[in-house]
Each structure stands twice: as C-alpha cells, then as structure tokens.
C-alpha cells in the first residue's frame, strides 16, 4: 500500500531518474572520496563469507555499488560479483577501481526498486547507503521486496540507511531532505535523502518479504542483516 503523500508511480520513476542524474554529475569526485570499505561491511562479509552451501558458484551483489569498494570485498568468496548502480557515471568509477586494483566485477546499470536479477540467485549482498536515496516510500519498500526476491533463502544481505539517530539531525521522525555535495570548483549539487527514524526502518523491514536476522544502530546508521524469502520458488 502506497503512502498517501506518495506521487503517482510515473513521477516516482522520474524522481529516481533525477537521483541517477545527480550521481552522474558528481560521480568522479564522489568516488574519489570513497576509497575505503566500511568496517561494518568488512565484518559482515567476514562473518558470512562462506556460511552457505553453494561454494564455487556463489553470486555476490553490491547494490548501489558506486565505485565498487564493497564489491571488491566479495570477490574472494564469490565466483561472480555483480556491481549494480543507477548511475552510469558511478559505474565508470567502479570499472576504473576494478582495473587499478585487479579485481573482477560484472557491472550492470539498474534500479534498486526494479532489479534485473533472477529470483534466488544471490548468495551474499551488500546494500549500504543507497536505500535512503530512493525518493518515495513506495520505491524503498519495493526495493526491499526486490532484494528478498533475488536473495537465496540461505543468502544474506547487509542493509544500511542513514537515520535520525545521527548527531547531525534533531528530528525524531523520518523525513525527506536534500544534502549538498560540493564539487571541487565549489559548485553545490543537491542530493535527495530520506532520513529514517529507526522504528520506521524496522517497520519497513518487517513489512517486507525479507527475513530480519539482526538489527543495530551504528555511527548514525540503521543496519540490518537479512535473509531472502522462502516463498519465491513456489510462485
């Protein structure tokens, strides 16, 4: 069920395209400031690197991959790692990083709310700092269900989103905002964010097809470790 304040679905796609355009514009500079993987992601990958049975044919997914700094963490334990992003500009930075650092990633341009990946194909996924860029609650919830669909029931994913728990914010309810990115020449570029209230993040996950295994607040972000849904194969 869509929120009442959500615009029609056609506007939804146009707004997601706007976010894509924003990241095309700032891609090179943005990626240059994102050299290192997050420690929370490293811990997740270490914990789930080989925890399920399909070793040898494992598929990893970095959803909202940007410059592929997290895809890089998956290559050791996955036969195929897909780096998916809406922005062609960011995918180019991913290709560059993979070339420089000598790892292999299958790049794909796509939308997190309409994933172009087959059901139950993904064994390990990282979906960090991306969900909050989807401009409507409908798109964000669709995206969670899409992750549940592509994730194998034995697969695991780490999700993160920015939250009102961060020191930067005074609000306690979730809200939409734009946060400026300043290009090297000083030009500001607005980026859409939905800042989640922790209980709202929790509620959206509970309402989704994902199976929530762990949940925490860390560094002002909501994190969840989730599993895929069991029901997909019967469809």
């Amino acid at each position: 069920m869509a929120d009442q304040q959500d615009p029609p679905a056609t506007d939804d796609l146009a707004r997601r395209a706007d976010v894509r355009d924003t990241y095309d514009e700032i891609a090179t500079h943005f990626a240059s400031t994102r050299a290192y993987a997050w420690p929370e992601v490293e811990s997740f990958v270490d914990a789930h690197a080989a925890s399920n049975s399909r070793s040898g044919t494992r598929v990893g997914l970095d959803l909202g991959c940007g410059n592929c700094r997290h895809a890089e963490l998956l290559v050791d334990t996955c036969e195929t790692v897909v780096g998916l992003d809406a922005s062609a500009g960011l995918l180019e930075t991913g290709r560059e990083r993979a070339r420089e650092r000598g790892f292999e990633v299958a790049l794909c341009q796509g939308d997190a709310a309409a994933l172009p990946l087959a059901t139950n194909t993904v064994d390990i996924a990282v979906y960090v700092a991306t969900l909050h860029h989807l401009p409507t609650r409908r798109a964000r919830r669709a995206s969670l269900d899409e992750l549940a669909r592509v994730l194998d029931p034995d697969g695991r994913a780490l999700l993160s989103a920015w939250s009102t728990a961060h020191d930067k914010f005074d609000e306690t309810d979730g809200f939409d905002t734009t946060i400026e990115w300043t290009l090297p020449g000083g030009e500001p570029v607005d980026r859409f964010y939905h800042i989640y209230a922790p209980d709202e993040f929790d509620a959206d996950l509970e309402a989704s097809d994902l199976d929530v295994l762990e949940w925490e607040l860390s560094s002002g972000n909501c994190y969840a470790t989730v599993a895929g849904s069991e029901s997909d194969l019967s469809e």
């Binding site: 796609l13 894509r20 794909c108 341009q109 796509g110 309409a114 172009p116």
Partner: peptide, 13 residues
C-alpha cells in the same frame, strides 16, 4: 561499452 543498461525504460536516459 560492455555494460548492460537494465534500468526500467522510463528511467533510461
């Protein structure tokens, strides 16, 4: 250029 564009058609540039 080696990268499939699988964005929904309405989001494609």
């Amino acid at each position: 250029d080696g990268i499939p564009n699988l964005l929904p058609p309405d989001m494609r540039e």
